[in-house]
Amino acid sequence: MSERVRELETLELVVSAAAAPLFEAAMAEICRSVGRFREEPGERWRIEGIRAVGAGEEKLALALALAAAVSGEQPELRRIPTPASGWLARNRADFPEQVIGERFALRGTHLPPGRTAGRITLMLDAGLAFGSGEHGSTRGCLIALERLARRHHPRRILDLGTGSGILAMAAARLFHRRVLASDIDPWSVRVAAENARRNFLARRITVVAGDGWRKRPLRHAAPFDLVFANILARPLCAMAGALAQHLAPGGTAILAGLLSSQETMVLAAHRRAGLILTGRVRAHAWTTLILRRPCHAR
C-alpha cells in the first residue's frame, strides 16, 4: 500500500458515558485510529474514528447496530472529509514495533528493516489496513495461536475476515503451511495480498473476497484443521453451524471480535453446534475463544 492512501473521512458520534465504551469498540472494528473525548459541559462523550472512505461499510453498520441495541442509544453518525496530508506521517509516528505474546513482533514499514531475535517478525504498512496488532481481538488471536502451536500443527488453515492479513501471515510463518484468507471488503483483500507479498508469503497465502462461508473456494478447501474468525459477535453466532460443519474432527477454531460481555452468547451458539471450549484469552474489553470440534461424535 505504501503511500497510496485512499481518501479519508472522520466518523463522529456523541453518546452517554455509559455507552461510550460500546461505540468506541464498534468504531475500532473498522477505523485505523479511534479516540474518545468528553463534551463540555455535561457527561456526553464524542467518539471519533478515521478510516478510508467506504472501507468496511457493512462491518461498520453491523458493529454500530450492535452497540445501539446493547446501549439503547441511536446516535447520529457524522462523516467528515479528512485531508490525508500529514495524517499518515502522524499515524506512523504512533506505530512503534509491537511485541505480542512470546512469539510475534509486528513492525511498520516506516521503521528501519530488522527482525526481533527469537520472534516471528511481520512487516505491515502503518496505513489503513484493518488490524495492526493494536486491537485487543488481534492480539488475543495471536496469543491463542502460539498456545495452539505448543500441541498441534494444523495442515489446512483458514483466516475468515482476514483484514490486513496478520493472522494468516502469522500462521503461515509459524506452521510453514499454505493458508486461505478471505474478507467481505475488497480493500482488505488487496491490502492482505500486498502484506503477504511484503513478507514473502505470497506463495503460501491465497486471499479471496467472500461473504462468510458462501465463497466456493472456502467450501472446496474444507474441512479445515484451524479456522480464525475475527469478526463480530452476531455474525459469529449466525455462522456457528457452518463453522462446525467445515471444521475437521479434532480441528480448532479461534474466534474473536467479541466484547467480554458477548462471550456467553457466542459460546452458547457454538456449543449448540457441537464445539467444545478449550481456552480463552482476554485483552482489555475483548475476549478470544479457542474451540475444538470433537474427534468423535458423542
Results as ranks from 00 to 15, higher is better:
R292D: 04
L289T: 10
S260L: 00
L218K: 09
L8N: 11
V208T: 12
A117N: 04
A61S: 15
R271F: 01
R214P: 00
E39M: 05
A209Q: 14
R219E: 12
A181R: 05
T288Q: 05
A52G: 15
E73G: 14
M239W: 02
S85H: 04
L88T: 12
S260I: 11
A285F: 07
P217E: 14
G165W: 07
N91P: 01
H284T: 10
R178P: 08
R293P: 09
P249V: 09
A105M: 01
R293Q: 15
V208P: 02
F200T: 11
H153A: 15
T206Y: 05
S137D: 06
A222H: 03
E48H: 00
E9Y: 01
L124I: 13
I276E: 15
R150V: 04
R272P: 03
H220R: 13
L180P: 08
T162H: 09
A256S: 15
R292L: 04
F228Q: 09
T116E: 12
G49W: 06
H296Y: 13
L232F: 06
T162Q: 07
G86C: 00
G72C: 15
R271N: 07
F200Y: 13
G101M: 10
V14A: 09
A181M: 08
G49T: 03
A28P: 05
R119F: 12
L275T: 03
C295S: 15
A268N: 03
M1Y: 02
G163L: 00
V189S: 01
R272T: 13
R198Y: 08
L145W: 01
A233M: 04
L236G: 06
A144C: 13
L111P: 03
L247F: 08
L62G: 14
L258M: 15
L64W: 01
P112M: 00
D159W: 00
S188D: 10
T288V: 11
L167S: 06
R280W: 04
I205E: 08
A240G: 07
G250W: 05
G86T: 05
V179S: 11
P75G: 02
R282P: 12
L218A: 10
P294C: 14
C237Y: 04
A117S: 14
A84D: 12
A297I: 09
G133W: 09
A233C: 02
L289P: 11
A63F: 02
R293F: 01
T116R: 14
T206D: 12
G108M: 07
G279R: 02
N199A: 07
G49M: 03
